[in-house]
Design a protein around this nucleic acid. Structure first.
Length: 514
DNA sequence: TGAAATGTTGGGGCG
DNA sequence: ACGCCCCAACATTTC
């Protein structure tokens, strides 16, 4: 057995440890050679700031095996393609910052259980630490793993890393978990947030395992087709990018957040979602930073700030829901929707929705923004979702699965909650009769048509009066804009008014009391 | 974090 | 001057 540090950091000293040979930086030898290593298993917590399991390990004064395991065995809701792109770059960024802290990140591949067992055997580690996850599949595999490792005499330490409150902390004693956001939010404001842990600056106890590790490239996370080409223009995965977005939010975006966050043509949102999804930044760090800025009067204590904090609260609520109602990743929370008459999928129709070829400008703009950047503005997500679920009558899971594969911020808790909200079957859901009209939404939130023109250039020459509904334009207006409906841009995939009424009738039938 | 239908009000044109 | 109608603008109700 042979363990060594990354060669980039020079000094290599081979020593005889108790049960193993260890190569590590010389100055930590006196501390490390008598103690068993601790494995820090990173998952959706790819950061050094406020990372409780990592912080715990650094306080232990013994060798650390800092490991990310890419387990691509086939499971439900396995990481999607856009998320893989993000993960690749996030791991790259983390590797660099870990090395800057004189540490080393081990990239490993294989079945999690096998990899961890091999690591334990190889290094003599007697402890493993991780930050908890709350998705049903993760909970199941984590608890199986924990039981298995405890039986083998390994100490397993799990931490609360990715939420301000554990899902079971915000709860009325003896009652059902919250299903309504405002009630949840009020209660969570009264519940003390989990504390921040100190940022990790030095990781020189890290050891490496050259016989086991793989390179980032070997993880093969990047798409094989030239699809994500435009992603880097929009994103900087990693902790530094996350902090940069938070800084921009506090310095500029937040002052007009309440209004601007609804305008898809404006950079009015925080754009923190993918960073949060991969745990490159913690919600506690975000809240603490906002609080600090408030104290220093750098931002105003107004509705803008409150609205933003509430959005962080929605993320917490989504995790609360997925923890207490784990079936909601696939099945409706509201039982009445079990037998809802979703329409049979026509592959061509579904594909036109996916590709942004519906002939409804705001929908097409959103779906193309998603495809080209891995992200879609939240207001537009509601609009495209409403079209799929209400006007086209397709099961919300079709939308959830597409988003899951194409969003860089894909998060099972938020995705499931969001789609069930749109469908009306979830917690605090939109009432069944709430059907978004993409034309009306365009006129209200993209009045100049700027957003549509960006993503649907073939109709860009239409004036703002027609840009959201080209089918209402006159022959003259169309020809002046160089559009031939049905050729250069499609006729609408569905007639909005009639399909709305039909949807209302379908939903009406299941609305009898629970 | 809805849209459309329906109801109400008030100004202005007009006989 | 007055009543009537039209309709835009806004409010309320309904799905």
């Amino acid at each position: 057995m042979f363990l060594q540090t990354s060669t980039r950091f020079g000094i290599r000293d081979t020593i005889e440890g108790n049960q193993y040979n260890l190569t590590t930086r010389s100055r930590s030898l006196s501390v490390t050679n008598t103690k068993s290593p601790i494995i820090v298993w990173l998952r959706r917590d790819l950061r050094l700031t406020d990372n409780p399991s990592l912080h715990f390990a650094t306080t232990e004064k013994r060798p650390i095996v800092l490991a990310y395991i890419h387990d691509d065995s086939d499971t439900a809701w396995q990481i999607g393609a856009a998320s893989c792109w993000w993960l690749h770059h996030s791991l790259g960024a983390l590797t660099a910052s870990v090395e800057k802290a004189s540490g080393h990140l081990c990239l490993l591949r294989g079945k999690t259980k096998n990899v961890l067992e091999a690591l334990i055997k190889e290094t003599g580690a007697d402890t493993i630490a991780w930050n908890r996850r709350y998705e049903p599949a993760a909970i199941e595999s984590d608890s199986n793993l924990k039981r298995h490792l405890l039986k083998k005499g390994i100490d397993v330490k799990s931490f609360a890393g990715n939420l301000c409150h554990e899902p079971w902390q915000v709860q009325r004693a003896g009652k059902h978990p919250y299903k309504v956001f405002t009630a949840y939010w009020r209660a969570s404001l009264k519940t003390e947030s989990l504390a921040l842990t100190r940022s990790v600056k030095k990781l020189d106890q890290c050891i490496s395992l050259p016989d086991h590790e793989t390179s980032l490239e070997e993880l093969a996370l990047l798409p094989t087709i030239a699809w994500a080409e435009a992603f880097p223009r929009n994103w900087q995965p990693g902790e530094a990018g996350a902090k940069k977005n938070l800084k921009t939010l506090l310095a500029t975006t937040l002052s007009d957040y309440q209004t601007a966050r609804d305008l898809p043509s404006v950079q009015g949102t925080s754009r923190l979602s993918p960073h949060l999804a991969f745990g490159e930044i913690s919600p506690r760090y975000i809240n603490a930073t906002v609080r600090d800025a408030l104290l220093k009067k750098k931002i105003a204590d107004d509705d803008n700030t409150e609205t933003f904090l509430r959005e962080i609260g929605w993320r917490e609520f989504a995790h609360h829901l997925i923890y207490h109602f784990p079936h909601t990743t696939d099945k409706p929370l509201d039982q009445r929707f079990e037998k809802f008459p979703w329409k049979k999928i026509k592959p061509e129709t579904l594909s036109r929705w996916q590709q942004g070829d519906t002939g409804i400008p705001l929908v097409d703009a959103g779906m193309r923004q998603l495809w080209q950047t891995g992200w879609m503005h939240n207001r537009v997500r509601m609009v495209v979702g409403s079209l799929l679920v209400k006007n086209l009558g397709y099961h919300w899971r079709e939308g959830a699965e597409w988003f899951w594969d194409t969003l860089v911020d894909a998060d099972l808790a938020s995705n499931s909650m969001g789609w069930q909200w749109v469908a009306g079957s979830g917690a605090d859901a939109a009432p069944y009769f709430r059907v978004f009209n993409p034309v009306r939404q365009g006129e209200r939130f993209d009045p100049e048509g700027t957003y549509v023109r960006t993503w649907v250039p073939e109709i860009a020459k239409l004036g703002k009066k027609r840009i959201h509904a080209p089918w209402t334009a006159t022959e003259a207006e169309l020809s002046e804009a160089g559009i031939v409906l049905g050729e250069t841009y499609p006729e609408p995939i569905v007639e909005l008014s009639g399909s709305r009424i039909a949807a209302l009738e379908r939903f009406e039938k299941i609305k009898q009391p629970k």
